[in-house]
Simulated scan of single mutants.
Amino acid sequence: MSQDDFSQRVYWLVSRIPFGCVATYGQIAGYAGSPRAARAVGTLLRHALENVGDLPWQRVINARGRVSFKGDLGRAELQRALLEAEGVRFDDKGRCDLNTYRWQPREIFWDVD
């Protein structure tokens, strides 16, 4: 799979995450066919803020249920605020309950090709 194919799959998957749900970087990487590419998903989403219109980038968080900072506190605060506006709640340690909010696409979702 080329990098461009991977990018398109990531953007397509992220665009399908429903309002009020989250997915992890690793989850998206796995669904996109590259389960070890969680960091690449993060990089793509960081650049998507400038290049991909209505992509709900805020719905992708780390495996601990937290918003990832990576040196940009302003974007992290925005991401959390956007998620909270969708009804996603965080505990006092900054984690959301992945058992409650994690996106679980139905099997039929994968029949689309």
Rank of each mutant, 00 (worst) to 15 (best):
G65H: 11
L73K: 10
R64D: 09
R80W: 06
I28W: 01
N62M: 01
R36N: 02
Y101L: 08
A81Q: 10
I28D: 01
G30D: 09
G87C: 09
P56M: 12
R89K: 13
G26H: 04
R39E: 08
L49C: 09
R64M: 09
F90L: 05
G71M: 12
G33I: 04
Y31G: 01
D91H: 03
V52K: 15
N51W: 12
R95Q: 07
P35E: 03
Y101F: 15
R66P: 02
A63K: 09
A85N: 14
W57D: 00
K70T: 09
R36C: 00
E84T: 15
R66C: 07
S34F: 03
G71D: 11
E86Q: 14
Q79N: 12
R64N: 11
R46I: 06
I28R: 01
D54S: 13
G30S: 09
L73C: 01
N62V: 11
W57P: 00
I61A: 05
N51P: 02
K70S: 13
L55G: 09
D54M: 11
A81E: 12
G30M: 01
L78I: 08
R95Y: 02
Y31N: 04
L78P: 04
Y25Q: 04
S68V: 05
S34P: 00
R66Q: 15
N62L: 07
R46Y: 08
A29E: 02
C96M: 01
R46P: 01
V67Q: 07
R89V: 10
L73P: 04
N99H: 06
V60H: 09
Q58W: 15
V52Y: 13
S68C: 02
A81V: 01
A32R: 03
G53W: 10
L45Q: 00
G42R: 00
I61Y: 06
V88R: 05
R64K: 14
R36G: 00
A38H: 04
E84Y: 06
S68N: 04
A85L: 14
W57M: 00
G33T: 03
R39F: 13
E77Q: 13
E77R: 14
A63V: 12
R95W: 03
G33F: 00
Y31K: 04
Y101M: 07
D92R: 14
E84S: 15
V41Q: 00
Q79M: 13
L55A: 10
R75M: 07
P56A: 12
Y31F: 15
K70H: 14
G53M: 09
N99A: 03
R59H: 08
G94P: 07
R89A: 12
G53L: 12
K70I: 04
V60M: 10
H47K: 14
N51F: 13
S34H: 09
D92L: 11
P56C: 08
N51H: 14
L49K: 14
L45I: 03
Q58P: 11
Q27F: 05
V60T: 11
D54E: 15
L44W: 10
T100L: 13
H47C: 12
R80P: 07
Y25T: 02
A37D: 02
K70R: 14
Y25M: 02
Y101C: 04
R59L: 10
E77F: 06
R80E: 12
T100S: 11
